[in-house]
Amino acid sequence: MSIAEGTRPRHVPDRLASRPARILRSWELLLTVIAILIFLANTQASPYFLDPWNLSDATFNFTEKAMIAFAMALLIIAGEIDLSVAGIIALASTAMGWALQYGAGMPVLVLIGLGVGLVCGAFNGLLVTRLGLPSIVVTIGTMSLFRGISYIVLGDQAFNGYPSDFAFFGRGYVFWVISFELVLFAVLAVIYGVVLHATNFGRQIYAIGNNATAATFSGIRVARVKMILFLLTGLMSGIAAICLTARLGSTRPSIAFAWELEVVTMVVLGGVSILGGAGSILGVVIAALIMGMVTFGLGLLNVPGIVMSIFIGALLIGVIALPRLIRLVRTGKAA
């Protein structure tokens, strides 16, 4: 019995699988392969694809959505979701346009964009953490609520005439073909990657998403972590609203319509479990690149938008189903 043997502890190694073995089995590797394949297909499909300025333009297809996707990834890993992000963009953009009519300058516009994002995030977060409502229901509600306010304010009008220093956030270039948005995307990717994978806060996010009860029992302040994540998602939506409004140069109530689904698609394609508890920022970054390239490549071929969404949808289902299909073929069991 173990009492006798117990005096001599057995050796338990830290890890079994070596680092290369873990990388080989990773979702991120699969995504990278797909990204390379799509890149090659694009170069074959259109001679214009490899032009640096064309490629630079292509990044606008995903940068704003990806910024939200980083925060959304954290939220989904923690077992919650925010479907109101596009609504927040509409409301933040409308608020900025409204302030513009009263002569607000660039700094004020930015503060308003960020502020509206935070307030909307706080509203979602309070409803979820204080009242214990399911986030999918809350944010489906606030999705219509936020955008509805923009419709009331704007009707079929638009706000125009954003100052040129404000336009930099959407149209500016930091160096040669490298846009401000692309730099912001890269910086945010690093920040979110570090927060999720290298901090105590990130560890708590995984713990909550895997088992919120056990996380509570381990002394994690679950409500506080979730509140912060809703605030972050709101803030990122505010930042995206600033970039998008600056890029378009105008605000209409239909701005960023249905973006929430593209953001969630990006997160799920990136390997984040929709049930919570698993996923990485690297996966989301590669998924963003894939979606950007697909949209751009098909655009170069003059494929209509509706076909693009069919392609993205098929890609998502295909990639998600692939590992299960492999297992089904190998073992005869799907799960």
Partner: peptide
Amino acid sequence: GKQGAITAMPIFQNVTLPSLTQTSRNGFV
């Protein structure tokens, strides 16, 4: 299974979960 351990997470992360301040520097794991 429900309240004690987070079964999908590795052993070492389960052990350190309530003691993360001990095993981190400035919030970094």
